[in-house]
Computed example of a mutant assay.
Amino acid sequence: MRAPLIRLAVNDHYVDVVTEAGQTSLLIRLADAIAETEGAPGLQVHRSHWVAREAVRAMRKEKGRVFLEMSDGEEVPVSRTYQPRVEAAGFPPSGAERMAAQ
């Protein structure tokens, strides 16, 4: 499973670790899993989600909610608490939002 990180997601008492090589679950707290990312550039976007910056493909807004489109095809929700930090990160808008802005 040694490969670039994509995201971490809480699943009951486990944390799903998703890399470019696949996915595994570890019995660990999210805060401890984030500490183990060895300085990989990323940010916590929800109490249950952490994302690697390089794995974010786009940011999408829908009815006031924000989602991040990840390189593995998944969408990660962004909580209101973390929304200003995510918007300040400068992730590109999704394709649909780019088209609507034109």
Rank of each mutant, 00 (worst) to 15 (best):
E38L: 12
M70I: 02
V86I: 11
A101V: 03
E54V: 04
V10D: 08
T37P: 15
Y14P: 12
E87W: 08
V18N: 01
V10I: 13
K61M: 06
M70A: 02
Y14F: 15
R65Q: 14
F91N: 05
A55W: 00
R47L: 10
T81F: 15
E75K: 03
G64W: 04
P77F: 01
S94V: 00
L26K: 15
S71G: 02
P41H: 06
E54Q: 11
R80W: 06
V76E: 00
H46I: 11
T24A: 12
S94L: 02
R80I: 02
F67N: 11
G22Q: 04
V78W: 04
M70S: 01
R57H: 06
H13L: 14
G64E: 03
A55V: 00
A31S: 13
D32E: 15
A33I: 13
S48C: 08
A33Q: 14
M59A: 15
H46D: 08
H13V: 14
A100N: 05
I6D: 05
P4A: 14
R80G: 04
M1F: 12
Q44T: 12
V45W: 00
V45H: 01
R80N: 05
L5V: 08
S25K: 11
R7A: 13
D72P: 03
Q83W: 02
V56W: 01
A35N: 09
T19N: 03
V10A: 15
I6V: 15
Q83E: 10
W50F: 09
A31Y: 12
A88H: 03
K63I: 03
I28E: 15
E87Y: 08
T19C: 03
R98I: 10
A101C: 02
S94W: 01
P4Q: 10
A33K: 11
A52M: 11
P84E: 11
M59H: 12
P92V: 04
R7E: 01
S94A: 07
L5K: 07
G95V: 07
K63E: 09
R53E: 07
L8A: 10
R2C: 08
A101M: 13
V10E: 10
V76C: 07
R98D: 01
Y82N: 02
E87I: 10
D72I: 00
S71W: 00
Y14W: 13
S48G: 10
G39P: 13
G42P: 11
E87M: 07
G95M: 10
T19E: 02
E38A: 12
R2H: 12
D12Y: 13
M1L: 10
A35W: 07
S71I: 01
A55N: 02
Y82G: 03
L68D: 03
R29A: 11
E69A: 12
D16Q: 15
P84V: 09
E97A: 09
V51K: 07
Q102L: 12
P4G: 13
V86T: 13
A9H: 14
S94D: 04
E54R: 05
V15H: 10
D72N: 09
D72G: 05
G73V: 00
E36H: 12
V45P: 02
R98H: 06
A21E: 14
Q44I: 09
G90N: 05
L5F: 09
